[in-house]
């Protein structure tokens, strides 16, 4: 599966469009990470626990999107967009969407 956030895959021709594919996941941070982040909040800077959490969540949403595209018979996803939003206190939604296509060489 070739992924890209450009309108087409550089160097390849799009042969067929399969429409929108997307994946989402909502993650809450755990108490341990919250306490660690609370201390880190005093001195500022990167909250590594939260970064890891969001990276994991983004990978999971991307995998769900890829599964959808595979089920449609696509071999690439173009125009991929990411969005993160805080949906509740301490929980964030990671949404990934794009257009499933078939590309040739």
């Amino acid at each position: 599966m070739i992924l890209s956030n450009t309108e087409n895959i550089p160097g390849r021709q799009i042969q067929e469009h399969y429409g929108l594919v997307s994946g989402n996941t909502v993650r809450a941070k755990n108490v341990g990470r919250d306490i660690a982040a609370g201390f880190k909040n005093l001195v500022g800077g990167e909250l590594k626990g939260y970064t890891e959490l969001l990276e994991d969540a983004r990978k999971e949403s991307t995998n769900r999107m890829i599964e959808q595209a595979e089920a449609l018979g696509a071999n690439a996803i173009v125009n991929i967009r990411f969005s993160t939003s805080a949906v509740a206190q301490g929980a964030a939604e990671l949404y990934v969407y794009g257009t499933a296509v078939k590309v040739g060489l």
């Binding site: 550089p10 990167e46 991929i80 990411f82």
Partner: peptide
């Protein structure tokens, strides 16, 4: 130039301010 390989890359960073700031 012809393209050999493309790859989607994404990275995130979570930051917060310190207490004083």
């Amino acid at each position: 130039r012809s393209v050999a390989h493309t790859e989607l890359v994404a990275a995130s960073v979570v930051v917060s301010l310190d207490y004083f700031k």
